[in-house]
């Protein structure tokens, strides 16, 4: 198992919490709206091949919440700033859910951010037939029920969800949710102009989706593929919104084959 450390660095005048582990070329991992779950099993496996950087977005976890980070575009600006400062430009990246949207926004702004990008269950593009589930009018338990297709196949279930959250964990989850509300309220979880702007992207992209995603409809995989010229799509069967947690082995295999 790779040894992960937790560090705090100063970016754009505020503190950024970053988990870092493994060795090899850098791999930037961008978490989703629910917050930074830390180096779970999939990240440990990826750290065998890469130096994994897993920051908590501004406003999440122990990272500061700058007043100017109001939108996903602001967040993308923050991360390109972080990349320049830390010498992490032109790196491989994976973005999960809202983090996938973030990666897509960064791709739409600069050709220097990433060398290869994997978008997993990514928000950011409005579905045509379905809807992205409104997570702000349901409670955390309901979100979790929708996020996983089959809890029985989630290897880290007990570790992640086996016991009732502590008051500190509940506070953190609320604080994280508050940041998600700030960033994605309206238009909800998408940017109507994003597909057009993705036309500039020339780096290789790979789109991964759980076939049974109940939060961001799998049709969005096709919409991302249409927007990103030359992209590949992998749909994992019997899997919900978070393949990296629900089917970590299949996910890592797919990731390593692409990255």
């Amino acid at each position: 198992m790779a040894n992960f450390t937790e560090e705090t660095i100063s970016v754009a005048g505020g503190n950024l919490q970053v988990y870092k582990g493994g060795s090899g070329d850098p791999l930037l991992v961008l978490h989703g709206a629910g917050g930074n779950a830390g180096p779970r099993r999939y990240a440990q496996a990826l750290a065998e091949k890469f130096t994994v950087y897993l920051p908590s977005h501004p406003g999440y976890g122990k990272s500061d919440r700058p007043g100017w980070v109001e939108t996903m575009q602001d967040l993308a600006c923050f991360y390109t700033w972080y990349q320049e400062q830390e010498g992490l430009e032109n790196v491989r990246a994976i973005g999960f859910s809202m983090g996938g949207w973030l990666a897509a926004e960064m791709l739409s702004m600069t050709g220097h951010a990433f060398s290869r990008v994997m978008l997993v269950g990514a928000a950011g593009i409005k579905p045509v037939d379905g809807e992205i589930t409104d997570i702000f009018i349901i409670n955390p338990g309901q979100i979790r029920d929708l996020a996983y297709h089959d809890p029985g196949q989630v290897p880290e279930w007990d570790e992640m969800f086996g016991s009732a959250p502590t008051p500190e964990q509940t506070d953190q989850a609320e604080s994280d949710r508050e940041m998600a509300i700030r960033l994605t309220w309206r238009p909800y979880m998408h940017n109507p102009r994003l597909p057009a702007k993705l036309g500039r992207v020339s780096v290789p992209t790979h789109i991964v989706w759980g076939e049974n995603d109940n939060l961001v409809p799998v049709e969005c995989a096709d919409l991302y593929q249409q927007a990103l010229a030359g992209s590949q799509v992998t749909v994992l069967p019997n899997c919900g919104h978070s393949p990296q947690i629900e089917k970590p082995d299949d996910f890592v295999q797919t990731a390593l084959a692409f990255l």
Binding site: F136, I137, N139, E174, R177, E178, I181, R182
Partner: peptide, 10 residues
């Protein structure tokens, strides 16, 4: 009412 209706986070 569900709490997230009456008093959403934030």
């Amino acid at each position: 009412l569900p709490r997230d209706y009456a008093s959403p986070v934030g």
